[in-house]
Amino acid sequence: MSLYFYEPFSDFDRLFDEAFNARTGGGNQVQRQRGDQVNPGVLKPRMDVHEDAASNTVTASFEFPGLKKEDVSIDVHNGRLTVSAQSNASSEREEGGYAVRERRFGKFSRTLQLPQGVKDEEIKASMEHGVLTVTFPKSAPELAPKKISIA
């Protein structure tokens, strides 16, 4: 059995931590440890997880708005799938006699525990319009429960 955690308020926690640290002048005096996220400078991309019992698959969708597939990395290590990306976008334009410069920098990372027995070649990934979709088997066929007939 695999457990997936959704943390809807992790962004709020981060914002409160940043506001508190800015107000008190403390750099990293308040640091919360949530799940795998020990590094407070790394943001978690939004994620949806769907299980399909009929096809025995799990589909995880990650939101990376404005990023291309070349900016995203997927790693598998010790039964854990880590999706990460880095955004380094900047733009410059003139508007109403003012120079407008916008910059977006940030690191994103999310880790999922894979079901036992999933092989690397069984994991499929695609990216379209800033949404990364990763599909993998819910359980390996050789690890699925087997029926034993009673004689």
Rank of each mutant, 00 (worst) to 15 (best):
F105D: 11
L112I: 14
P115C: 01
Y4W: 10
A60V: 15
V30R: 13
V58F: 09
R101T: 09
I74N: 07
V134H: 00
F108H: 06
G79R: 11
R34V: 08
P137C: 04
T111L: 04
Y4E: 02
R80G: 04
S149I: 06
K138R: 14
E51K: 07
D71M: 00
N28L: 09
K138V: 01
V100K: 06
K119A: 15
N39H: 04
L3C: 00
L143H: 04
K124C: 04
T59L: 14
V30T: 10
F5L: 02
L112A: 13
L114D: 01
K124G: 00
G106H: 06
F64S: 01
R80N: 13
L81A: 08
S10Q: 11
T135G: 04
Q86L: 01
R110Y: 08
I150A: 10
G26I: 12
F9V: 05
S55H: 08
D17G: 06
S109K: 14
I74R: 09
E121H: 11
S109I: 01
D11I: 01
V83N: 11
E63M: 00
G79V: 09
G117F: 01
D11N: 10
T135V: 13
V83C: 08
D120Q: 13
P115Q: 02
E18R: 11
D120L: 06
R80W: 10
V30M: 05
G25C: 07
E7P: 03
G27N: 12
F9T: 11
S91I: 08
N39C: 03
